[in-house]
Design a protein around this nucleic acid. Structure first.
Lengths: 344, 344
DNA sequence: GTTAGCAGTCAAACTAATCGAGTGCTAAAA
DNA sequence: TTTTAGCACTCGATTAGTTTGACTGCTAAC
């Protein structure tokens, strides 16, 4: 499709633009990048690249900037080597080796590290509830009138919720609840308790509906609830020249402030190890000026969360992708060790 | 200190500036506010108010804007009546009557409502740990290798943490832990477990240190941990004309993104029901362009959290303070009902 | 196919001129 | 003594006009 030199020119333009945020002129390329030809030749190449839609021109007498198509080609075809330093690898290793007890903590660490190294804003959410299997469910009485329900899934995600009663709950009631709920729900997907199941549970138990009802309500509520969103380095975005535009800044804040948008953002696209959405490839209009790169963290092949980066279209894709690849690999290997431990 | 007319003029300027965000001229006041004198007279008054430091002038041929001292006087002396509508009262009542099981949920609702009504950004944090008394502590085994510790305090705040083991934990171990820890810690302040106590616990128990150590570590960690920060309506700030200045916008994001700053912000000043910090009254430089209004939510006279508003210096103090007063009153009365219930 | 060279383009930077909202002062009126 | 009308003055904001220079695109020679 594109001959070797055109590829080189495109690559040089993308990389130059990523660094400087200024439209790239034919001259800059002859001087700085190892292209063995004159600016006139480069102009010809640029002109053709523009015709085929890889480049845009802000106006006649400016240089060229990559179009969405240009970035896409760059990401898909032109990034070859990993762009990650030994120091960065060491730093990531160190961070990810921190001992954690809950997956959420690991996700948090990964999200922070990702933002630190790439200097972009990173976000993360947990897995969809109904993809998980309930592995254990326990009731705990706090004081005499607060009852906590704790649910653990096969991915070791722990959800808890509290019900407050107007009358005392006895320890023997708690035992009964423990037995009943674990016999009925363990092994089932973490999902809303449906009517038949509710009826069944109610029929099985010999005391007040007023105790059981709120429990089921609360479980359904906590299950439906989207997982907490983790957000790191939102302030870093403000260092970008792109943020001089108030509209862009506002869109950015708006997106990050709207839970649904972030969830959407992280949930679109499932196919590859690492997903890249460039500018208007995103469905959401407010995201048109941004690019998003995501990956899914898996345990035993099951999703336990999605971590992503949101930055300008002019994002340093090669760095972001490399770092993400490494973190993703590292997180999987950590899981495997755990798995091994558990099997021992 | 200030005669009646000067007060009137100052009040008019503050209110006009709050509405328009434009420097206020002597003319505007004669036309719109019930001041029975000419613009010349007002100019004389303004000039004197400026000399005594209540007003600032952006430049010679602009109108006047209130200085920090001006706002302060306005807040302390000139706001008389409540500025809250029946609709707003109804809305708040409705929201705060939502049945909640945990205080955090109530705090969250209050924070959201506050932001919705005032159109400013609101933040909240929980109480300082060591001010609370442990009322119950329970251990729950999840699966065979995950142990959850749940602590409830006298303010009904619930903290939980998880410890992951490499070997199985038995149910009888859990019982022993339950007995030991509740006998030792219930009634004590929610604080780090000190060395002597640790020694004592270790000496009392007849099985492996490797089980106990991580528990104490985790408890100490979760106790030290600052409470989650709740943040509502950060995007609303971007509607303000003040945010045209990139520096201000960046400061704002920076503050909200730095946990320590938000905690600081909410923790300074404890004296009054409602605390107002105007511009550089704040210690932190990054807050110099903002004002902060906070109040503490109490149960049985003990702090259970601080809720605050952060907005421009040109904040609608009368509205914010009125709404906050009402929410604060309402939250306390809700607590009292609970208290009554519990005593019944 | 490449390149030197030159005309043409256009945003950005600079300059000058004008406008007008607002003050401060003075002197007369109340 | 206080208030007010009136006028000169100030100074940022706006507008228009000019220059600059970083680009491209084309042409013609290599």
């Amino acid at each position: 499709m594109l001959d070797e030199r055109k590829k080189k020119v495109l690559q040089a333009i993308v990389e130059e633009y990523i660094n400087t945020a200024e439209p790239v002129s034919s001259n800059t390329l002859t001087h700085n990048h190892g292209l063995e030809c004159s600016s006139a030749t480069i102009r010809n190449e640029m002109s053709e690249l523009e015709k085929s839609g890889f480049l845009d021109k802000p106006h006649t007498s400016a240089g060229r900037v990559p179009s969405a198509k240009g970035y896409r080609f760059y990401v898909d075809e032109l990034i070859k080597e990993d762009n990650i330093s030994i120091e960065e690898i060491k730093y990531i290793q160190e961070k990810l080796e921190t001992k954690v007890n809950e997956i959420q903590d690991l996700t948090k660490i990964a999200t922070t590290t990702l933002s630190e190294i790439t200097h972009y804003t990173s976000v993360a959410i947990g897995p969809k509830s109904n993809l998980q299997i309930i592995e254990d469910i326990k009731f705990v009485l706090l004081g005499s009138r607060m009852l906590m329900v704790v649910i653990m899934t096969d991915t070791k995600l722990v959800k808890e919720t509290i019900i407050k009663y107007d009358e005392d709950i006895t320890q023997s009631q708690v035992e009964t609840l423990n037995n009943l709920f674990s016999s009925k729900l363990v092994g089932k997907p973490l999902d809303k308790i449906d009517k038949p199941m509710e009826e069944y549970i109610l029929s099985e138990i010999n005391y007040s509906v007023s105790v059981i009802k709120p429990i089921i309500e609360q479980i359904n509520k906590v299950v439906e609830e989207e997982n907490t969103i983790m957000l790191e380095g939102a302030n870093r975005a403000f260092e970008l020249p792109e943020f001089k535009s108030l509209e862009i800044a506002r869109n950015f804040i708006n997106v990050l402030d709207t839970k649904e948008l972030v969830v959407d953002m992280l949930n679109t696209g499932i196919a590859k190890d690492i997903n890249v959405y460039i500018g208007d490839e995103n469905d959401n209009k407010q995201l048109k000026d941004f690019s998003i790169v995501t990956f899914r963290h898996k345990i035993h092949g099951k999703d336990v969360g999605t971590i992503g980066i949101i930055g300008p279209k002019r994002m340093d894709y090669s760095k972001v992708i490399s770092v993400m690849k490494y973190i993703s690999k590292k997180m999987n290997s950590t899981d495997n060790e755990d798995e091994d431990n558990e099997r021992r």
